[in-house]
Design a protein around this nucleic acid. Structure first.
Length: 572
RNA sequence: GGGGCACUAGCUCAACGGAUAGAGUACCAGACUUCGAAUCUGUCGGUUCCGGGUUCGAAUCCCGGGUGCCUCGCCA
């Protein structure tokens, strides 16, 4: 496929000897209003270098580009050079490329099989998997898909929060007020109730805190009784988490969480000490970071037990040694920005030059209409309930629209569309933004939503079924672009052309919403094309050409939704 | 108090430093005997939080202020 921007830059590089081609490339624009052309080049900044008035420069450039057949029209508007791509050739090339590429269209060799780690979801054991966890889970899964698509060798890690003083609290609470059968029947809710009760009881009996710390210290020391309880809580919790992961279609290569590194930390505590980075303060071991504009980082507590950051140091080194990562990506809430800055700085100070390959991908906070979620106070919305709620609503809609469908089909589509709606909604906006969870928002299936895009895909599939196998086969062999002439068809072709660049951009920014928005644009564009033109016309050549367009749009929508981690049903 | 992030249409959000700031939603008005109406078309809707500055050009960059959220050694 022709890279138009490259081509324009090549021509302009000869016209503007004072600028590097890369600089020129950066100056090429895509006008928001397509009446201004497909590409535009503003000449204001050249005035100083070339010592001429911008419109004069634009005039010269216009002439130079006019001689190229890639463009059917080149227009000067004041200091702008507006370029209009030759449509027939463009449309033919794009559609052929998508149709022949199929599910590989948009893939890139940029990754060259380099190892990339994506750490995401990482819920705390024995605590509810709530709506706040959807962010890391879904954003991380999508980033993993995107990097895989770009050719990287991706390892997915669920860094479970399965360690720390909280388990001391949990064990203490269980021993005082627990019941085995309750835990077996409803693990998370029961364990959460222990955790909540602990925080109520501790108000009247502060010694419980000490008891919890001591209990965790015994766990860290590997005492059998504490280890068994901990293992049991972990197993029960993980079983509940996997239900949600199954619904979301999320998988992992490793569940090595915090506990996995519990015996790998002394080495680094020693190393920090030997490298003179650590000092004692009020009984705790700390690394001072004032000169880097940060507060000190606590490495070990005054009772000698370790902290989060210590485990993260151990985990990073372990991952470097095990996977030799090219990039080590952490999809973790922006609340932990300071923690990650401290941690990367400490790795740097320890002399690990790969610290710069570790990337924190932060995201904003989810709150509820009545305030911030609080596990301790039991003010949470369970993710599983949100997913089930969305599936329930979808099931009703399908039954209403399609009363004849059999139960099994309805159930399968309801899951794909309902869960897809939640996932798509989550990946619609920039991840750094905070938002307030609202049922009416996730259960909205009209406009810029997952179901809308899935519907568009199903509609395209329906047209292809009606067109018949012969026409579809013919379209994949070749077609005459002269039949695809409307503006809406051309706009659609442009969006399909941009798809590979959009994926690269999303990868570079660790920002799935870039993909989400582009797929919405494609769906909108396709629906306009659908309404503007009759596709299954009598004339065979015209029909074949339009079906090629439908195949291309369907293909890219499917790939795009796949990168978001969504299922793409052919009927709904 | 220190540090960080956010602020754009009634609401939810877009906009590589570029041309008249765009979508969805809500409201209103239209389009199914025709390829799927979970769709499409149109109308309405703006002091881009405020004030300076840089620039040919600022929602975007810099400085100051405001509001909200996050965070600042023994949780993660």
């Amino acid at each position: 496929m022709i890279n138009y921007e490259e081509k324009i830059a090549e021509i302009l590089a000869q016209q503007i000897p004072d600028l590097e081609k890369a600089e020129i490339l950066g100056m090429i624009e895509k006008p928001q209003d397509s009446r201004m052309g497909d590409y535009a080049f503003p000449c204001f900044r050249l005035a100083k270098v070339m010592k001429k008035a911008p419109p004069l420069i634009a005039g010269g450039i216009t002439e130079a580009i006019e001689s190229n057949t890639l463009f059917e029209k080149v227009e000067q508007v004041n200091a702008y050079v507006n370029m209009f791509v030759s449509r027939d050739e463009f449309v033919k090339n794009v559609i052929e490329e998508v149709v022949s590429g199929g599910e590989d269209y948009g893939k890139s060799g940029q990754g060259e099989g380099k190892p990339v780690i994506v750490e995401y979801s990482s819920p705390n054991i024995a605590k509810p998997f709530h709506i706040g966890h959807i962010r890391s889970t879904v954003i991380g899964a999508s980033i993993a898909h995107i990097y895989e698509f770009l050719g990287y060798d991706v390892t997915r890690i669920n860094h479970l929060g399965d360690y720390g003083t909280q388990f001391g609290k949990m064990i203490v609470a269980y021993r005082h007020w627990g019941n085995k059968q309750d835990v077996i029947d409803e693990p998370i809710r029961t364990l959460l109730s222990y955790y909540t009760r602990f925080h109520i009881e501790v108000e009247n009996d502060p010694s419980l805190e000490d008891e919890a710390r001591a209990t965790f210290a015994r766990l860290e020391a590997g005492e059998t009784e504490e280890m068994e309880l901990w293992q049991w809580f972990r197993d029960e919790s993980l079983r509940e988490f996997s239900r949600v992961y199954d619904m979301l279609g999320i998988t992992y290569d490793s569940y090595a969480g915090e506990s996995f590194y519990s015996d790998k930390m002394p080495r680094f505590v020693k190393e920090l000490s030997e490298k003179g980075l650590m000092e004692e303060d009020q009984g705790a071991q700390i690394v001072r970071l004032e000169e880097y504009g940060m507060s000190p980082a606590l490495i070990t507590k005054s009772d000698g037990s370790t902290l989060y950051i210590t485990r993260d140091i151990a985990a990073a080194v372990y991952r470097k040694e095990t996977y030799d990562f090219y990039k080590n990506i952490y999809v973790v809430a922006s609340q932990q920005n300071l923690h990650f800055q401290q941690w990367i700085k400490i790795l740097e100070l320890m002399g690990y030059e790969w610290a710069q390959d570790c990337v924190h991908v932060p995201f904003g906070l989810v709150s509820l209409e009545d305030g911030t979620m609080s596990t301790r106070e039991g003010r949470v919305v369970f993710l599983e309930e949100v997913l089930k709620g969305a599936v329930d609503k979808t099931r009703e809609i399908i039954r209403e629209k399609n009363p004849d469908a059999d139960d099994e089909t309805v159930e399968e589509i309801a899951r794909a569309v309902g869960i897809g709606a939640v996932v798509f909604n989550e990946l619609s906006n920039y991840r750094i933004k905070d938002y307030v969870f609202s049922w009416s928002n996730v259960l909205n299936f009209e406009g810029e939503t997952g179901p809308y895009v899935q519907y568009t895909h199903a509609r395209a599939c329906s047209i292809l079924r009606n067109a018949g196998e012969d026409t579809v086969t013919a379209a994949s062999r070749g077609f005459d672009p002269g039949y695809i002439t409307s503006d809406s068809a051309y706009d659609l072709a442009k969006l399909l052309y941009e798809f590979p660049a959009v994926i690269e951009d999303a990868g570079a920014k660790y920002e799935p919403s870039v993909v989400t928005r582009h797929i919405v644009d494609i769906a909108q564009s396709f629906n306009r094309f659908y309404h503007d033109e009759h596709i299954l016309v009598e004339d065979e050549d015209e029909r074949v050409a339009k079906i090629a367009m439908v195949i291309a749009a369907k293909t890219v929508i499917k790939t795009g939704l796949g990168l978001l981690g969504m299922k793409v049903p052919e009927r709904m």
